[in-house]
Amino acid sequence: MGKKVLLIEDEPNIIEAISFILSRDGWDVATHSNGHDAVDVVRTKSPDMVILDVMLPGKSGYEILRELREDTSMRDLPVLMLTARGQSKDREMAERAGASRFMTKPFSNAEVLDAVRDLVLQS
């Protein structure tokens, strides 16, 4: 398929895990691990979808998502949000920021794959 997924996450082990899962499924995976320049990276790499962690150094996932949504070219970009905080208000904040889907850590590998496939297909 060769579709491009950009993973923005700061925990090295999680980066490795998700990269492994998606690559094995045939996705082209790029990674980035801080919040400061995440929006620019999305712009330059123009992926088919983004997996975005909430807790990032420099800038929170919500802020990054809001900025992405303000940019017309990325309004419809599928974004899967990951968070390690399982409270309902985190889900609400993700929805308000414009997340396409929201997933709480820890997740099963199959869930992540399904979500990525769905989101790319829908778009």
Partner: peptide, 8 residues
């Protein structure tokens, strides 16, 4: 949850 994620 962060280490649990990697472990799982």
């Amino acid at each position: 949850r962060t280490p649990m994620t990697s472990i799982r």
